[in-house]
């Protein structure tokens, strides 16, 4: 089995690993780097549970080989909060009950982060379009839309509860 040495930066930390060429990026993150916050929900690039930011762009990490990510700067759900404070999107999901089982949530939040980076004040339709690649079976999306609206409205206030009632 041939392997390739790759280096990636994930949530600000540098990692190197020897990987099989066929190793999927999601498996690098989950099984090699032990960052299990990103989930695997399908095998057809359909569900979005595996969504991460790669060099600032949201991407389904089940759809890329780890070797293709060599040199990349990656953000996963584990990298959203900083200094013990939630990212505005995390705060929105917490405040607006944007999750139930939580399985879709990491990928869903990453898509929301990407949306708000590109469009700081999206309307309902724009939010729905932006997250159409992320399936959620629990919430019916109602509270996810509310959560992203909340994040948009509060992203600059810095009033992040960090999950305290």
């Amino acid at each position: 089995m041939t392997t390739n040495r790759i280096s990636v930066t994930v949530n600000g930390t540098d990692y190197s690993a020897d990987v099989e060429p066929r190793l999927l990026l999601i498996h690098l993150l989950r099984d090699v780097l032990d960052l299990t916050g990103t989930h695997l929900g399908c095998d057809t690039s359909s569900c979005g549970a595996c969504t991460i930011l790669l060099n600032g762009r949201s991407l389904k990490s089940c759809t890329m080989f780890a070797v293709q990510a060599d040199g990349a700067d990656i953000t996963t759900v584990e990298g959203l909060a900083s200094d013990g404070k939630y990212h505005a999107v995390q705060e929105g999901f917490w405040q607006k009950h944007g999750l139930q089982c939580g399985f879709c949530t990491p990928g869903m939040m990453i898509s929301a982060v990407q949306l708000l980076d590109r469009n700081p004040d999206p309307d309902e339709g724009e939010i729905r379009t932006a997250i159409r690649g992320n399936l959620c079976r629990c919430t019916g999306y109602h509270n996810i839309v509310e959560a992203i609206r909340y994040a948009a409205a509060n992203r600059n206030t810095g009033a992040m509860s960090g999950g305290k009632q």
Partner: peptide, 17 residues
């Protein structure tokens, strides 16, 4: 608000995988 949420929105949940 749900106490489950903190671990689930920070990537600290534990699913079987």
């Amino acid at each position: 608000k749900r106490r489950e949420d903190h671990r689930l929105i920070t990537g600290d949940g534990t699913y079987v995988d």
